[in-house]
Amino acid sequence: MRQVRHIFKKEFTSYFISPIAYIVISIFLLVTGWFFFTTFFLYGQANLRNFFGMLPIIFSFVVPAITMRLFSEELNVGSYETLLTMPVTFGDVVLGKFLAAVAFIAAMLVPTLTYPITVSFLGELDWGPVAGGYLGAVLLGATFSAIGLFASSLTRNQIIAFIIGVTICFSLTLIDKMLFFLPQSLVGFMEYLGADFHFENISKGILDSRDIVYFVSVSFVGLYAAHLAMQERT
């Protein structure tokens, strides 16, 4: 387990060594800032519902971009071979990389705290939903990271890893918007699968154990699949 810490540290710092991190963060802030504040004054309501509302869609593009290199690059360069012949387990590697991605997403969210602070000057801001929203954002980011990590473990090509990651994350986001295609009996089930559905609950400030269980279990499935995919390569 100590190895997880070292892998985490290495992955997290290497995000900030390469320019990719800064580009991703800038794009994320630009896009969220633009979409949030262009409509904010039209509604005239002091809340962050709009910001959190678009987060699942934005995350389903940004998070796979963050995770795409985690395994693909190692597979491509071959450094995976040196890594796995050191005394580490598959679990250490997967967990270390996953936590690094989650920490990076959390770091990416920190500058957006200026939004609620700005809004609180403009009106009466209810901090409950904001706190819930940020908790949900981290959980959603973690879930998408696990999926992105799995996509990255499938291929040595980062672009393919990105596309696979986006496809899965985007489907999970949109699935509850597509329910009118389905027979009534399946709606409840498919709705439960939708990441957006669960994120909405949390970002309203409602902490329901079902939502948390959803995020934790999807993350677990993603990580376990990545674990299996890596094991299959040896």
Binding site: K10, S14, I17, S18, V77, G78, S79, Y80, E81, T82, T85, M86, P87, V88
Partner: peptide
Amino acid sequence: IKKLLGYLPESAPLYHDM
């Protein structure tokens, strides 16, 4: 066993940005 071993793979694949 991995603790007892040191391994240099072919063409030394390392992390290029470190």
